[in-house]
Amino acid sequence: MEQELLLWVRGTGLQIASAVFLIGMVYRMLHILLLGRKHSLAQPRGSEWSGALRTLWKRTFVSTKLSARGNFTVITGFIFHIGFFVTFLFLSQHIDLIRAVLGLHWPAMPRGVIDMAAVLAIGAMVALLVHRFVDPVKRLLSDYQDYLTWALSFLPLLTGFMLLREIGFEYITLLTLHIASVELLLLVAPFTKLAHMFSTFISRWYNGAVNGFKGINI
């Protein structure tokens, strides 16, 4: 049964999850773009593109002075995102998968680095969840989606780490759980705010384009 389940998540399950993810994401992003915006009739003072590209990059780093809670969010958020992407992109097993699907590959990072990145990312996520509960601003803003997407992002990290260390369950169970948790994430991502993984770049583009048009170097 376990082998069959693993086979299913590695095969049909992955096909379904990838299909839903791509249909949803392509639909969502294209739909946003197709909604269109009015092009300004005002005389430009700079270029939309240069402003857009600048913001695309620069907004990765928040330049505004923040309060302690703001800094906490930025730093923890950074640790989570970096940890997540390091484990996702540089664990040799993940590179094997990417190579199998896309034909692309690159050198893996040492396991020690991956372990540390995973632990940091898991720790950062827990800290961010606690902060979401205790910080009045976040508590006010949060709805069920915030907790759902937190859980769905957390599970792949947790099961992935358990799998590397074979904690709690057998390898095969953990591998099945890990792949299944990723598939769950893929299924839900396009329909929740996890879509920010792509729309962020559209948002930054539009924000930067407005400033670029006005010739404001921000």
């Binding site: 992955l14 096909q15 249909i23 699907v101």
Partner: peptide
């Protein structure tokens, strides 16, 4: 390798897009 899909994901992905 074990992480590789056991089914053709690329074609499905292209069709999905």
């Amino acid at each position: 390798p074990l992480p590789a899909p056991t089914a053709d994901v690329s074609s499905v992905a292209q069709a999905a897009a």
